[in-house]
């Protein structure tokens, strides 16, 4: 079972890395969009420091969302998704492998890039550790919820726009608590309650999202 999981995950990673541009595209979208804010709001250091956590998180959310469409789309187009359905392992595990690969290819690079962007946005130094911690705790949740959206819209017209309509409302709680945690750290309050809720969301999404995404895939491919 674990062997199938590892093989599937490695396959996705290898495909993405061989093609090369996927990870670079997500990160450069993240960087460029954050750069727009000082230009739009004005380079006032205090203003930027105030909105830094929110801007970094909102942009990370959008970057994850843009990458969701390709989670199942390329497999759907070349037909390999039919073979995935035929693997002896449960489909939920297959989906979880693809989600893990997606997180390694988008969530992880975002975590690495986030502190640099936070520095660009003049975020107070107390926030850095918590920003990385919230990213590490919450980006897996984003990939998990996103997989449900990607599976539901497989084969739909204008799937990309539809994913954002479905997934963004479900991302809002993650955004609220992640930004609240960073703000709490900056203003010297306890970040514990926010981190606990983020952890609870991950704990709930981990079993439920692969199950819902697998159900959607099974139906979509019949």
């Amino acid at each position: 079972m674990m062997r199938i999981f590892r093989h599937l995950m490695m396959r996705d990673l290898r495909l993405a890395l061989r093609q090369g541009s996927d990870v670079a595209m997500v990160v450069s979208f993240f960087v460029i969009t954050v750069t727009l804010f000082p230009l739009g709001v004005g380079p006032e250091p205090n203003v930027l420091a105030r909105i830094a956590a929110g801007v970094v998180w909102v942009t990370a959310l959008l970057a994850v969302m843009l990458s969701l469409e390709r989670m199942f789309q390329s497999d759907y187009e070349d037909g390999s998704v039919d073979l995935l359905l035929l693997t002896p392992a449960p489909l939920e595990l297959v989906v979880l492998a693809k989600i893990t690969a997606h997180w390694l290819l988008t969530g992880f690079p975002l975590i690495v890039t986030a502190p640099v962007l936070a520095a660009l946005m003049n975020m107070p130094s107390e926030g850095y550790a918590v920003l990385i911690a919230t990213m590490a705790l919450a980006t897996p949740t984003l990939s998990l919820i996103g997989a449900v959206g990607a599976a539901l819209t497989l084969g739909a017209r204008r799937g990309g726009v539809l994913i954002s309509l479905l997934v963004l409302p479900l991302y809002i709680p993650v955004l609220i608590f992640a930004v609240a945690a960073v703000d709490a750290a900056i203003t010297d309050l306890s970040t514990r309650p926010h981190m606990l809720i983020l952890g609870a969301m991950l704990a709930a999404a981990l079993p439920l999202a692969p199950w819902a995404a697998a159900a959607a895939l099974r139906h979509g491919l019949r």
């Binding site: 539901l152 819209t153 084969g155 539809l162 959607a216 139906h219």
Partner: peptide
């Protein structure tokens, strides 16, 4: 939106239910 996103109207029912 999801209900009406597919060419075959019956196809959207199950994703929308999920």
């Amino acid at each position: 939106a999801l209900l009406n996103a597919f060419d075959d109207p019956a196809r959207g029912a199950k994703p929308a239910a999920i």
